[in-house]
Nucleic acid binder design. Sequence first.
DNA 1: TGTACATCAGTGAACGCGCGTTCACTGATGTAC
DNA 2: TGTACATCAGTGAACGCGCGTTCACTGATGTAC
Lengths: 208, 208
Amino acid sequence: MMTTRSRNPRGEGGKLRDEILNAARSLAEEQGVQAMTLRGVARRVGIAAPSIYSHFPDRDALLSALVDEALAEFTTEVSAAMGAETDPVDSLRAGCTAYLDFAMRRPNSCQLAFGPLDANLTMTPSGTTAFELLVNAVDACVRAGVSVSTDPFADATAIWVALHGYAILHTTRPAFPWPPTDAIIGRIIHGLASLSASPSSRRQSQLR
Amino acid sequence: MMTTRSRNPRGEGGKLRDEILNAARSLAEEQGVQAMTLRGVARRVGIAAPSIYSHFPDRDALLSALVDEALAEFTTEVSAAMGAETDPVDSLRAGCTAYLDFAMRRPNSCQLAFGPLDANLTMTPSGTTAFELLVNAVDACVRAGVSVSTDPFADATAIWVALHGYAILHTTRPAFPWPPTDAIIGRIIHGLASLSASPSSRRQSQLR
DNA sequence: TGTACATCAGTGAACGCGCGTTCACTGATGTAC
DNA sequence: TGTACATCAGTGAACGCGCGTTCACTGATGTAC
């Protein structure tokens, strides 16, 4: 089950840091943050628990590294999805879809990134960045004349909370008779981004 | 700090059940579900921890009682707020306001009622009931001719997730520059309940 | 009226668990003289 | 070329904590005969 580990050669002790991070990440992703215990990580890596202290000062530091990672990956995915579209409505939709994709694929990473942050975990600017992408997307719709939003920031906020609520409740209450995810996304962006009818939005609404 | 307790008279041992429930509720409300430990409850009531077992078979049973309570209180509040209005849009708005009021006043009860349910906690029908109120409210708007919604269920779902997301993120990220709560509610119900302009909605939008 | 007994409302000590963290250490590997 | 020493990459045992839960018990109060 646990392959025998041989000690890293001199000067490459840093490799263990990555192994620890990997184990911690997979533990948190598979079983939730509270399952990421130092002893659990040590068991998974195949080391003694105190060895972690050579690489992270305490559990919070390790957790904080995971949060940063999750936020960065989240932002990257959303950003890539949005950048792949040229039409502003398509881009907004792609961003929302990427958000929910991430949340559904890795609910525990989502909890890590957006869950209650302990006071001792620093809030990285990456969190803000993903939100700024959303504001810009709404703004782009306005500039393209397909949205009548007068307050892209507030509209983006509304979209954010809706996506977040859906992500959480969908994960948490699988028994609820959820409408299809892209129908929800359609409702959210059309309703909350003040979209007027546009070729893109008309095409989408004909899909269902 | 902890007043000396005298043992309940014969036949009134059931009183302790209420004291336990009260202590458990206040602990969960003030410090979150994970703070509701049997030893913590016992400390607060002023009894020995094993005494709880005369009234609840285990921690999960006590937790489950709290969940039922929180859901029932939530539903009652939302229902009362909606019933106080006659205009369907006002009623919908009042329901949403009551939802967020509850979530802001008692975030930990909200976590209890809507957070991840363990498999061993039964899902009471009360949760469904509050949601049904919402579906009915959207439906009432349609019947009154102020909503063009063609799918009140899906629209109610979208409103639900948006409210839920707002409640959670607002509590969890107080540093975010949130727009005023009723502005958010306005956006959510107008955008997601497919409301057309109505006297009521026009009055509301003039407010801000 | 007295007394044995059952019931009730609890208690105190203990078990075993997993946790974060500290401490003194070990043993291999490189380096200075 | 040999050897003392420093460094590196860890380890094993232990501490103290709070937890859920079990167990055998205590002592007051009511009830049957």
